[in-house]
């Protein structure tokens, strides 16, 4: 095991390790974070949702964005899979359809970082109780 020889060593080690637990820390306070849900039902997976999810997770983790990515079941938009729901804090959730890896990056760069809307938004057609 690597020795921690100084206070700086401990600080550095902590920074290196922090990302391992970031996912768990985030789930303690999801309200204050951008919540991304990827629909991962059979149709979503068949249409490539797994690659989209991986892109979203890797990209947001690499840039340490305050984002929490979870998977969810079928959202009912089978015509536009893969679908991704993005919930910015304090705003209405927005659902993007036909997302691929490139569009996933667009969602991060444009919508999440700058609040610009993209093409392919699916109007919410139901209310949750």
């Amino acid at each position: 095991m690597e020795k921690i020889k100084s206070l700086d060593d401990l600080r550095k080690k902590r920074q290196e390790l922090e990302s391992q637990l970031r996912l768990r820390e985030k789930s303690n306070a999801p309200e204050s974070l951008v919540q991304i849900k990827v629909a991962m039902a059979t149709c979503g997976i068949a249409a490539g949702a797994r690659a989209v999810m991986n892109t979203l997770i890797e990209r947001t983790a690499a840039e340490a964005l305050p984002v929490i990515v979870t998977q969810t079941g079928c959202m009912g938009y089978c015509h536009s899979e893969p679908t991704v729901e993005v919930h910015l804090p304090g705003k209405e959730a927005v659902v993007f359809g036909r997302v691929d890896a490139r569009k996933a990056i667009d969602i991060i760069e444009k919508y999440i970082k700058r609040g610009e809307l993209l093409d392919g938004i699916i109007p919410q057609n139901y209310e949750r109780i």
Partner: peptide, 25 residues
């Protein structure tokens, strides 16, 4: 119920031993 108790890395990632470092310095 949050970290693996047998893994010192997870404790350090949760600010473990940072209080000791602060006190000592």
């Amino acid at each position: 119920g949050f970290i693996d108790p047998e893994n010192i890395d997870e404790y350090i990632a949760r600010d473990g031993y940072a209080a000791l470092a602060t006190v000592l310095s």
